[in-house]
Design a protein around this nucleic acid. Structure first.
Lengths: 180, 180
DNA sequence: TAATTCATGTAAATCGTTACATGATTAT
DNA sequence: ATAATCATGTAACGATTTACATGAATTA
């Protein structure tokens, strides 16, 4: 259960409300790393506050509460970040599909692989476009957040794309050899 | 909830018992794609059997039961494989750490990145060694399973390694600029 | 014959998602 | 005024994990 650490990490970068945290999980964070909805975030913030790892440092309009990490919270985050437990929790529906490709008929497998190749190329290009507008160095402090993540996403798309193209070639070679 | 599809996929490649399926989840499948333990696998097999998507095709020693996919089960698998639902479920503790790196002090961030770079290099090398012993073409049928997955893992390690080295360089450049 | 591995299961507790619910503020 | 967005929450259900439990077959 890594949700509490995800929240501590986001709040360590910058204090936020539950609502703002929720938005972070619908962006890249939720897309590549960890998903969570507001119905798990709000109760978890309550638990973290009870444990003294976060605290409400500001209350705003519409009953919004801005949370910050406490020193104890930062210590907990740091410990979790630097001591990876094995095995790490992994769950990725897309990757699962890739692992199961051999279960399909070759024709279906190729259809799926072409879809993966096309999508990874398109999303990589889009991300590259967005990154092209960003500064060439990592901005200091809170602005640096997302910079490393974006580059990770980019390399991820490239890796998936390369793999899909490779797999297509291999499958087509096999099909060719069989019909020959 | 992708567990039923993971099971259908594994059984479509080759009929297995719950025990054998459990072992598959502790190997690469569980490491990169989807985790599950025997306590969720056995009940799920029961549910799939009730729905007519799998059936027991063999009973062996020690009460073991070998399951196979039915035509209906294969149809369900195929449909799930070829129509990716958005957003896909993603949960990866290691990737989460990467996303939260900016929350750490630069010194801690570098420690973490060096650890990631070292581990991805070592695991990539090990996988490369294992793959070096494999045939250069995808084996037909059940033996082809794992071949695509292994190459995916390899490219994954390379991508993570490249990213970590890039991030280390960027962070060191920033640290240098600040102290200058 | 003792330890290990094979092989399956249940129960309780925890975690996560979906559906339901409310009200304040801002933009059109 | 109306719609959209901001902002928080609870309840019920479903999924997952951890702990508990059993016994057969194999290996040392």
């Amino acid at each position: 259960m890594s949700l509490p650490h995800a929240l501590l990490g986001l709040l360590a970068v910058e204090p936020r409300s539950g609502y703002e945290l929720t938005k972070a999980f619908t962006a890249e964070l939720g897309r590549y790393a960890w998903q969570a909805g507001h119905t798990s975030i709000y109760p978890e913030l309550g638990k973290l506050a009870e444990r003294g790892l976060v605290e409400v440092t500001e209350e705003g309009a519409r009953g919004s509460r801005t949370y910050s990490v406490t020193p104890a919270g930062y210590a907990e985050l740091r410990s979790w970040m630097l001591t990876p437990r094995r095995p790490a929790k992994v769950r990725n529906e897309q990757v699962l599909r890739m692992f199961l490709i051999s279960a399909l008929e070759p024709e279906d497998a190729l259809t799926l692989l072409h879809g993966i190749a096309d999508r990874s190329a398109a999303e990589g290009a889009e991300l590259r476009r967005v990154l092209g507008e960003a500064p060439p160095e990592i901005p200091a402090g809170a602005d640096g957040f997302g910079y490393l993540a974006a580059e990770y996403g980019l390399r991820q798309y490239d890796a998936v794309h390369g793999w899909a193209r490779w797999a297509i070639e291999k499958l087509e070679a096999r099909a060719g050899a069989e019909s020959a």
